[in-house]
């Protein structure tokens, strides 16, 4: 499966992939983050149930220092 994550192409060796599984594969489990899938926010409660498709675009963001 081909995905674009934070502007970079990435391929995953999986037929079916949920957002929750993706978070695990990216070693982001337990981190505070928010995810947009094709410019729509995926609520954290929906990570398990949201399945990704080929060529989906994701933004994964967190809080950093800023003024």
């Amino acid at each position: 499966m081909q995905l674009t994550i934070n502007g970079k192409p990435r391929s995953f060796d999986a037929e079916q992939l949920s957002v929750a599984h993706l978070v695990e594969l990216l070693e982001l489990t337990g981190k505070r983050l928010a995810i947009e899938l094709n410019a729509e926010i995926v609520p954290r409660s929906q990570f398990e149930h949201t399945l990704l498709k080929n060529n989906d675009k994701l933004e994964i963001v967190g809080a950093v220092g800023g003024g």
Binding site: I5, E27, L28, V61, G62, V64, G65, G67
Partner: peptide, 20 residues
């Protein structure tokens, strides 16, 4: 306190401390 929202650094060492 203000914070900025930015793309998560993927591939960052797990367990690396964050602002939070």
């Amino acid at each position: 306190i203000t914070v900025a929202i930015r793309r998560t650094n993927i591939g960052q060492t797990a367990g690396e401390p964050s602002l939070l």
